[in-house]
Write a protein that binds this DNA or RNA. Structure first.
Lengths: 246, 246
DNA sequence: AAGTGGTCTAGACCACTTT
DNA sequence: AAGTGGTCTAGACCACTTC
């Protein structure tokens, strides 16, 4: 009680408010459905302005811990949907982060007018031209992941002259060439087909983790890729409610 | 230019700023590394205060589209890590959302002092008591997902008297009993073992999607669960850069 | 030394929703 | 009708970083 302990904030005020409320929720002191204090009550308790409280509570909404309703107040949310954050790296970085040498070895490269199957993967207009690329990513000497990719030449015309041979995979190449994009990932499990199994050096039928990703910019689809990982060697980790925000 | 067109904002100002910047980035007009205008330039352009600009740019940082550095400015980020948002539902809701009847059928229930294997799954002190539960979730008449769960009786003592028989799976039960929690998910692919394959009605060795989830509250571990989905029937969808925020 | 973003204030008006 | 949260302002001080 003596000595000005207030000297070292060491953290921001809105972060302290956020952490305090979060602890009360995670400890069970404030169960789901519980009405937490109003903004003006927090301002009194912490001796701060409404905006500071508002920022903290807004972050809690973003994390899914509370819901806010006008005229009613703010309530602890019922945890029905867990929105987890999944970090998806570029494969080159993924491999190098493991301390292994990265390599890309191309297998096939086909230029063609989009078939019905292609247009299904990429949502293209009729007669659009696409580039289909297959190959394998290596971590050290072991196959790491098989790639089967479709690139829209309308979105990335430069790809037509690119051979993807000198250890630069199409994913890495596109990352440099196409400025920014949004994506959707679908994750599933499949039994490896014979050709892919041979590439990966596993028995046909082995369970594999498959990530299918569609990527687009503001107005058009760029690429669709099907990445096949040997299931027993790869794990995706998604942490829910990470400790950081703001 | 005539008529006050300013009448209908129809959206908030900070959201308009955010959308404008996002479009410039996704269209490629502002490539990675590009320095975007300073806050005070935005305030002039939009005729607003700094806090409004700050909120918009802060949201863009959260989405991973820009990075901000003091004294230097704000820059379009290099898209190396895609942090995708994965929505993980309670299985009951997942099934009912498909318009199918949900059912839970228990298979095994064992009360025991934690073995080494159990303590590895749940990070418990020696001699802690745990409840192991196995069973299957059904969508309509078809098996939907096999569950293999470990519950810490230290964290949830009431579970000792719970039988999990009347269509309330342990996940749903825990969701009601334990107020709020954080979790970590690990996603991988495995070949179905004979017993699980029999439960799911698939051939042994079929590729399955496995989600392993550990859940804890502020201070202690609650439960660990291993969910096995038939790989060809289930997909996880993770959207990157969703259109909403704030 | 100067300029950036990070934080915060003490107000204000408004939209929405429940009473 | 009243009270909540949502948005916004026009300032302010500070920390950090590059100059």
């Amino acid at each position: 009680m003596d000595e000005r302990v207030e000297k070292t904030p060491d953290t921001t005020l809105h972060h302290r408010i956020l952490a305090d409320v979060e602890n009360r929720i995670l400890s069970g002191e404030w169960p789901p459905g519980h009405r937490i204090p109003f903004e003006h009550e927090f301002t009194q308790q912490y001796g701060c302005s409404r905006m500071t409280v508002s920022k903290a509570l807004g972050d809690l909404v973003r994390r899914g811990l509370i819901e806010r309703r006008r005229r009613s107040g703010s309530f602890v949310a019922y945890p029905q949907v867990q929105s987890a954050v999944l970090e998806i790296q570029d494969i080159r970085h993924e491999v190098e982060a493991l301390g292994l040498a990265y390599a890309w070895r191309p297998q096939g490269r086909t230029l063609r007018v989009a078939r019905a199957e292609d247009r299904n993967r990429l949502d293209l207009p009729p007669r659009a031209r696409v580039l289909a690329v297959t190959g394998c990513h290596y971590a050290g000497r072991r196959p790491f992941c098989h790639e089967d990719r479709l690139i829209s030449l309308r979105a990335v015309p430069e790809a037509e002259n690119e051979m993807f041979d000198d250890n630069i995979g199409p994913g890495t190449w596109l990352l440099r060439k196409v400025p920014w994009s949004a994506a959707e990932n679908r994750i599933s499990a499949v039994s490896a087909e014979p050709e892919i199994a041979a590439t990966l050096g596993i028995a046909a039928g082995t369970a594999c983790l498959v990530i299918e990703r569609r990527t687009w910019t503001a107005d058009q689809h760029i690429t669709q890729v099907r990445l096949t990982y040997p299931g027993d060697r790869h794990q995706l980790v998604a942490a829910f409610t990470p400790s950081q925000s703001s």
